[in-house]
């Protein structure tokens, strides 16, 4: 199946049609999407600020990581489900939309950044767990994460102002 046909198929599913036709479903799913993103960005920023040595400096990185990341993942899952539902309602339109594509690109880059951090710098966290000044790799990961998440939010908002 090629892309345009797949997108049309998505749009014609019962769920997608229901969201498109209803007056209240889209804003409701969108509200859930926004609330989820708010918690994703807010929680991950707390960890990022710790990695940068700008906040929660008296707390160990691994402890903060253990407390925060489950909330981040849970909200991220909600954001993905709600976002997919929004996408389905006008799949062809969103697929061709530049800010939407940029948003997906930034999400991908965040994924790569997270993977490098989790499999690299974070593995020997025990040796810098309580340091106020974390290793360069950790500071880079935190800074990149904050900047890219701001881009995700900006692109997301921008989608609403394009056709």
């Amino acid at each position: 199946m090629i892309v345009p046909e797949f997108l049309t198929w998505i749009e014609n599913t019962h769920v997608a049609t229901a969201i498109r036709v209803s007056t209240w479903l889209f804003p409701t799913v969108e509200t859930i999407h926004v609330l989820s993103i708010v918690i994703v960005v807010g929680s991950i920023t707390m960890l990022d600020l710790r990695l940068l040595g700008l906040a929660s400096r008296d707390r160990s990185v691994s402890e903060l990581h253990r407390e925060i990341i489950p909330w981040t993942w849970a909200s991220f899952a909600c954001a993905v489900v709600a976002g997919s539902l929004l996408f389905s309602s006008a799949a062809t339109k969103y697929y061709a939309n530049t800010p939407f594509r940029l948003k997906m690109m930034f999400l991908l880059l965040i994924g790569v950044n997270t993977l490098i951090f989790e499999l690299g710098t974070f593995r020997n966290v025990k040796s810098w767990d309580r340091e106020k000044r974390t290793p360069l790799g950790a500071r880079l990961a935190g800074g990149i994460s904050i900047v890219f998440w701001i881009c995700v939010v900006a692109c997301g908002r921008w989608i609403g102002f394009t056709k």
Binding site: V38, I39, G42, T45, V153, A154, R157, G160
Partner: peptide
Amino acid sequence: LWIIPAVQTVHILCVTIVMTSMAM
């Protein structure tokens, strides 16, 4: 044209800070 989306983006980013702090 860019002022409203830009200001809304700042607004939402600030909401993430307030909302997460309050949720915690």
